[in-house]
């Protein structure tokens, strides 16, 4: 940076001021969520708005864990989101690789159809899907949700994976194939390790998408035994009251798996693994 120390200071303050503003705006709802989840019931419905409650308690967490179906919803969500993430990523990796490396008949049309699926709102396909899934026994089932989520995730995940494969030089697998590997082995031993950031990003995208989805979860599954978390959260909002405390506590708990998931994959999200493969 150039200029006098004073100008530099102003620039520095502006730079970090804007960043701070953004961070505060982004994190404030989270903060409020945590704050309410820790506020005891008796001080929750007062007139004053406090930035932090005078006393904090874990009573809402106790209610959520001990006195509701929360653990069941949680388990359902983990299964649905986990399987969706793995299935979509595997399928998207396969199709993304094909789009990146092969020229084949109908390629143009397949890409077109995949783009079209991304263009209309999901609401309009709910009714036909419901009437197809009903006779197949896929309503009120986790499997039904997994199939729907995977199907709707694949097009975007495929484009995502394709862009990651495009970033890896074709020569690497050519070299491996000359070294004696089959194309599949080259993909597994050479390309896949280099695509880990892409795989992690795609998995994260699919996982969070499935984790927060409510439309299909609400309409396809009405039984508590197959409800996922977002649907469970709605149960705290009844005709008479909204139980903000337990709802927020459940919300905080719902954040945990996503946080853990991203904590685990963040190391792979860091790019730059391919540096040095080709001239740099």
């Amino acid at each position: 940076m150039r200029g006098s120390p004073r100008v530099r200071l102003v620039k520095w303050s502006l730079h970090y001021g804007v960043l701070l503003l953004f961070v505060v705006a982004a994190l404030f709802p989270l903060y409020w969520l945590v704050k309410i989840s820790l506020t005891p019931n008796d001080s929750l419905y007062t007139h004053s708005i406090d930035l932090w409650p005078a006393t904090i308690s874990l009573e809402h967490y106790a209610t959520v864990i001990g006195n509701s179906d929360f653990l069941l919803f949680f388990r359902n969500s983990v299964i649905v989101s986990g399987v969706t993430a793995i299935a979509s990523t595997l399928l998207a990796a396969a199709s993304g690789y094909a789009f990146s490396r092969f020229v084949f008949r109908g390629r143009y049309w397949i890409v077109g159809v995949m783009l079209v699926t991304q263009m209309f709102p999901l609401v309009i396909v709910i009714t036909p899907i419901f009437s197809i899934f009903g006779p197949l026994g896929l309503t009120n089932s986790l499997m039904g949700l997994i199939i729907i989520y995977t199907a709707f995730n694949i097009p975007f995940a495929t484009f995502l994976m394709q862009s990651f494969f495009d970033g890896i030089p074709k020569e690497l697998e050519e070299a491996a194939m000359i070294d004696g590997a089959t194309r599949f082995k080259a993909l597994l031993q050479i390309i896949a390790p280099l695509t880990l950031p892409g795989i992690a990003a795609t998995m994260g995208f699919c996982f969070t998408g499935a984790w927060g989805e409510i439309l299909f979860a609400l309409l396809l599954n009405s039984a508590a035994s197959t409800s996922t978390f977002p649907v469970g959260l709605l149960l705290y909002s009844t005709r008479a009251t909204i139980e903000f405390g337990p709802m927020m506590a459940a919300g905080v708990l719902a954040l945990l798996p996503v946080c853990i998931f991203f904590f685990l994959i963040q190391r792979y999200l860091v790019q730059g693994l391919t540096a040095g493969a080709v001239k740099g």
Binding site: P169, E171, L172, E174, A175, A176, M177, I178, D179, G180, A181, T182, I190, P193, L194, L273, T274, A275, G276, A277, V278, K279
Partner: peptide, 20 residues
């Protein structure tokens, strides 16, 4: 024959070393 069965070695312009 696929490349692996031709028993040849190749040096690429970009070297194509396995980065990992």
């Amino acid at each position: 024959l696929p490349p692996r069965d031709r028993d040849i070695a190749m040096v690429f312009q970009s070297y194509a070393l396995y980065p990992h």
